[in-house]
Design a protein around this nucleic acid. Structure first.
Lengths: 339, 339
DNA sequence: ACCGTCTGAGTAAAGGTTTACCCAACGTGG
DNA sequence: CCACGTTGGGTAAACCTTTACTCAGACGGT
């Protein structure tokens, strides 16, 4: 029978009493430190289990100056990018007993700062910053922070570690795939040129074409908007030209969906006449397109996992060389590029 | 100049020294408790600001037995529903200094339990459970928990508080809107009948038709899948019948998009010949449909906000009557139902 | 038989904050 | 002028865990 009121959680004291040892011995037994007979250790562990004892992380943190908690700040209110990243971070840290506070920040800098303050009061051991756009900074001042910070899908500057997808490699993989399918006139329809990822993906497109001995189809990458509507417009423009492409590599899945729909409406067969590949591998878009879209997956989860582990290293005092780490993308082939 | 090493955070002791008072006085000044001259209070506040003092939430929590932290458990790995809910919860609690741990659980019950354990070790004051499907329970045992739990988009049983969208009211609003537009043959295409929300939305459809003096179009609600493909199939079936509908109310936005696309392919004008309304108001689907979809918004954020506040009340010891709270949905009118 | 060493486990301080309680000084009323 | 209430602020315990230090006893070597 428990020694305290039923609703109260057992403390290390209760375990000590139950096992007939001192609280120091309990602590040591539970943490695998110190020396004692196997019998004593067993007895303590048994008592702890019997009382359903869970150490109070607050008290532990007070002493060890580690809260086993990190904050994840993101401006991706929508969660499209942030959630896989967060799952990755969690996955990388849960084994180390670390939990994640998620803060979805809006544009409001005051509110954002108060979120950051709350995190610091909670004594987070570190912070992950996850952007939805690489070349855009969160409305928060990370200067003067006493804890390490790593960035994912956003850049932290020269003295920080940043994890980014290898956009160019992803684009190259997509285009190489199309070229390998025998496509020769591969167009590229993408988002606004002011987005760095758009420029990087276009660069990958160009590089892969060169490697395959092909020339860019048309005047160059077609920069526009990240929307289905732009996909439609781009098809209209392309098919108004002298020679239609036999493949379109798109800067994201929404554009790719617009392109695919527009082609079907024109009676152009996908992938028979034209193969289409998207970017992001956003299941809800790629999977519902007719036919389902081949797409480049940025492996956001793995990105998050590695960011979490890198943060943990810094928390543990390891010196981590700052800079940008690029993780490879993976091409997910579906029907739109004919398997 | 700060009294301690630069990287160390100031403690209440430092503030006390700076202000020339005892730590007890600092604590009271900062928390607005106790009695002291206005001058003293000012001086303490000034010192705290000068040292950029933030109380250590761990230490405070140790004493007050409140961590000012809640856990949000969800099985919505995708984030479609969980993220707005989480934002609402955060919004409702941030003013009270409460932060949110987000845990996205997968099917793995062992991992899920370890997440819950981690939360309890971190001494969360309460837990919000956010489902992605009402009639589906998370692979976690909430029994024997010493903290209050509220449910959002999921039901917690008889002794818990649950916040759900008023699906039926949302459906009624959509159908009343269509009827108000003069539509008379209003069909309903929705997801699998085994989903409770599908049955509730269908019930709303039926009720609103009755109120408007209309009869269900066709044999009844058309249950199928939550996909665009089902929208296409449903249109094929409907237009094979004796009389085509002049409006389609869909169980979610993906179905509505499928329906709209299928209609356009048949040369049926939307909203000219047929008006379409969806459910979920998922921007990425509703906004990109041609024409943009009218849709029922479940106000997930408000749902989360209220859940957060209800949880806070329980944490503060208020008795909250258990049961289901239904919050109204809002119809967002776009072009597909002709403004 | 004695000294030194190792083993197993306990003692107590520390970590930052809150709060119940205490106390000196001051003011007020009779 | 004294008793008493009030005011302003300090003292110290408590919250729960970790860990440096202590210490008694056992054991082995000479």
């Amino acid at each position: 029978m428990p020694r305290r009121a039923d609703r109260e959680r057992a403390t290390i004291r209760d375990v000590a009493a139950e096992a007939g040892v001192s609280i120091a011995t309990v602590s040591k037994a539970l943490n695998g430190r110190g020396r004692m007979t196997a019998e004593t250790r067993e007895r303590v562990l048994g008592a702890a289990k019997a009382l359903n004892f869970r150490p109070n992380a607050l008290a532990r943190g007070l002493h060890t100056k580690r809260s086993f908690t990190v904050g994840l700040l993101t401006d991706d209110v929508y969660g499209r990018f942030a959630l896989p990243v967060m799952q990755g971070v969690t996955e990388g840290l849960i084994d180390h007993g670390v939990s994640v506070f998620l803060c979805a920040l809006e544009e409001n800098p005051v509110l954002a700062q108060s979120h950051l303050d709350a995190l610091m009061e909670k004594q987070v051991d570190g912070i992950v910053v996850a952007g939805r756009r690489v070349d855009r900074i969160l409305p928060v001042d990370f200067g003067g922070l006493t804890v390490p910070v790593v960035h994912v899908m956003s850049e932290g500057g020269a003295d920080r570690v940043s994890f980014l997808p290898d956009e160019e490699q992803g684009a190259r993989a997509a285009v190489a795939h199309l070229a390998g399918l025998g496509r020769r006139r591969i167009a590229h329809v993408t988002g606004p040129e002011r987005f760095r990822v758009a420029r990087e993906r276009a660069e990958g497109w160009r590089a892969a074409l060169a490697e395959a001995g092909l020339r860019p189809h048309g005047p160059g990458a077609m920069y526009g908007r990240w929307s289905e509507a732009w996909g439609h417009e781009a098809v209209a423009a392309l098919w108004a030209g002298p020679e239609a492409p036999d493949a379109v590599f798109c800067g994201n899945d929404q554009i790719a969906r617009g392109v695919t729909d527009a082609l079907r409406e024109r009676g152009v067969r996908v992938p028979g006449d034209v193969a289409v590949v998207g970017f992001d591998n956003w299941e809800i878009v790629a999977g519902e397109t007719r036919p389902p879209l081949s797409s480049v997956d940025m492996n956001l989860r793995e990105l998050g996992r590695q960011a979490g582990l890198a943060l943990l290293q810094q928390i543990n005092g390891a010196e981590v060389v700052p800079g940008v780490r690029r993780l490879p993308c993976t091409l997910k082939v579906r029907a739109s590029s004919g398997a």
